[in-house]
């Protein structure tokens, strides 16, 4: 596969949320508003990029039998550092994203990419893989949160676009997350059959 394909596969064909159905827990929890969804996507992409680079560089020295604990330590360290650096140097960004940073530790996509990709590929493809997967996840979160915010709160990025009486509160509550994700998955499965990706 070419570098470009490593990048684009994460966006549609192997989209982590819609095609691999990974990372559904943060995807359901934070998609109550578009701002939150995109923020989580950005923080996630940063950590995935760092962990993919380090794990790809260390792939020949990590013994196979203890690779998972080693990955977990590496990922958790990056998340902790990101959390502290953001809190110290970009307080306004931290205020918006702060609650999502610790959640990234348990994001299974990052461990999944470390195991399935970065531990078997050299650094350049790993970087492209991280960027593509990050973008794919961000787009997926953006899509889910757009439906939920518009239908549930009547706003888009905080701007009122529907009259006050229209929104269905259910959509920003947990059931709305499941309903939206379920409908989107069904729609994408249908499209996939039709166009045979």
């Amino acid at each position: 596969m070419s570098l470009m394909q490593e990048f684009t596969k994460g966006i549609v064909k192997e989209n982590p949320l819609f095609r691999l159905v990974l990372g559904t827990c943060p995807a359901l929890a934070v998609t109550t508003s578009v701002e939150n969804g995109l923020g989580m996507g950005a923080a996630f992409t940063g950590v995935l990029l760092a962990s993919n680079i380090v794990i790809s560089l260390m792939r020949s020295i990590i013994p196979a039998s203890v690779r998972i604990p080693a990955y977990v330590v590496i990922i958790a360290s990056f998340v902790t550092m990101t959390d502290q650096l953001m809190h110290a140097f970009t307080p306004s960004l931290y205020k918006a994203l702060g609650i999502f940073i610790p959640l990234i530790v348990v994001n299974c996509i990052i461990l999944g990419r470390a195991e399935a990709f970065a531990s078997r590929n050299s650094i350049l493809p790993s970087i492209m893989d991280a960027l593509g997967m990050g973008l794919g996840f961000t787009i997926a979160l953006g899509l889910v949160s757009t439906f939920r915010e518009v239908l549930g709160a009547g706003t888009f990025l905080g701007i009122q676009i529907l009259p006050e009486s229209v929104p269905a509160i259910l959509m920003i509550l947990p059931p709305g997350g499941f309903i939206t994700l379920g409908c989107l998955l069904a729609l994408l499965n249908k499209l996939q059959k039709k166009y045979a990706w």
Binding site: M81, Q84, L85, H87, A88
Partner: peptide, 8 residues
């Protein structure tokens, strides 16, 4: 990182 960031 903590030593650097904590006072800030």
């Amino acid at each position: 990182v903590n030593i650097m960031a904590a006072p800030l």
